[in-house]
C-alpha cells in the first residue's frame, strides 16, 4: 500500500508485444499530439509520447531485432521534478504519477535533460493539425502551445473521467475501468493498466511476476512501468 490514493501502474508484457506500433498511433490520436512532418522527424523532433525502441543485435545473417515500447515511466523518484524552477512538473498525491502542468511551463527544458528515459517531448513550434486531423482532436485534452514540455500522462483524462463516474455512483474505481489509449489499442493485450494499491487488481498480480523488471532500475528512479520478459519471445 503506498501513500497515494491510487498508485497507477502499467505492465508491459514484452513477451506478448509484437512491435506493431498500434499503441503509438492510438496515443498520438488520443492526446492531440501534433504531426510535425518529415523534416522535423528527421531532425529528431517527433513528438510521440510512446515509441517503440528497436535495437539490432549481432551481424548479418545472425541478426536479431529487439524492441521495447517506451513512454514516461512515471517515476516515484522522478529526476525531472526537482529541477523545474516553476513547479510545472510535480508528483500527484492523488494518482501517484508525475504530472505536467502545461500552463505553468516556461520551457527551460531542464526536466527533459534530466530524464534518463528521454521521455519528454518539447513543442518546438506551435502545433499543426492539417486537414482532416483537426476533425479528430480530443476535446478532453489540451492542445499545447509552442515552447512547453509534454509527455505521457497515463491518459490522465481517462483516469479523471473514471474517478468522476465512480464518485457519482458512490463506489470506488473498478479494476480495468481505466484503460489508457495504448492499452486499448494493443491487439495482444501486452499493456495492462491498473491500481497497484488494489491487491486483487490485474497489475498487482502481474507486478509480482518473476519475469518483471523496471527500466534502468539501478538509477533508483522507481518507475511505475513494469516490463515483463521471460525468454527470447519478442525477438524477430
Amino acid at each position: 500500500m503506498s501513500k497515494y490514493e491510487h498508485h497507477w501502474t502499467m505492465i508491459v508484457d514484452l513477451d506478448k508485444c509484437t512491435g506493431c506500433q498500434a499503441c503509438v498511433i492510438a496515443c498520438q490520436a488520443e492526446n492531440n499530439i501534433p504531426v510535425v512532418g518529415e523534416d522535423e522527424i528527421r531532425k529528431g523532433r517527433g513528438m510521440q509520447w510512446l515509441r517503440i525502441e528497436r535495437y539490432w543485435e549481432g551481424e548479418y545473417p545472425n541478426i536479431r531485432a529487439r524492441f521495447i515500447p517506451l513512454m514516461c515511466q512515471q517515476c516515484e523518484n522522478a529526476p525531472c521534478e526537482p529541477v523545474c524552477p516553476v513547479f510545472a512538473t510535480y508528483h500527484s498525491e492523488v494518482d501517484g504519477i508525475n504530472v505536467q502542468v502545461y500552463n505553468r511551463c516556461i520551457g527551460t527544458r531542464y526536466c527533459a535533460n534530466n530524464c534518463p528515459y528521454i521521455a519528454r517531448m518539447f513543442n518546438w513550434f506551435d502545433p499543426q493539425f492539417p486537414e482532416p486531423l483537426n476533425e479528430q482532436l480530443n476535446p478532453d485534452v489540451t492542445v499545447r502551445q509552442r515552447g512547453i514540455m509534454e509527455k505521457c500522462t497515463f491518459c490522465i483524462q481517462r483516469i479523471r473521467r473514471a474517478r468522476e463516474t465512480a464518485e457519482a455512483e458512490g463506489r470506488s474505481i473498478r479494476d480495468g475501468e481505466v484503460q489508457p489509449a495504448c492499452g486499448q489499442a494493443c491487439p495482444t493485450n501486452a499493456i495492462i493498466f491498473g491500481d497497484l494499491n488494489d491487491p486483487n487488481s490485474q497489475v498487482s498480480r502481474l507486478a509480482a511476476n518473476r519475469r518483471g523488471f523496471r527500466l534502468l532500475e539501478e538509477l533508483g528512479t522507481e518507475p511505475a512501468v513494469i516490463y515483463l520478459k521471460g525468454g527470447e519471445s519478442n525477438v524477430i
Binding site: 513547479f87 516556461i106 527551460t108
Partner: peptide
C-alpha cells in the same frame, strides 16, 4: 533559451493571487 520567454517572470518569487511560488529545489 526559454521556450516561453514572455513568461520568464514566473521564476521570480513575487506574491500572486494563485499563491504560486518558484521551486527553490531547482
Amino acid at each position: 533559451h526559454l521556450g516561453r520567454t514572455w513568461r520568464f517572470y514566473w521564476m521570480i518569487p513575487y506574491p500572486n493571487q494563485r499563491q504560486l511560488w518558484p521551486n527553490f529545489h531547482s
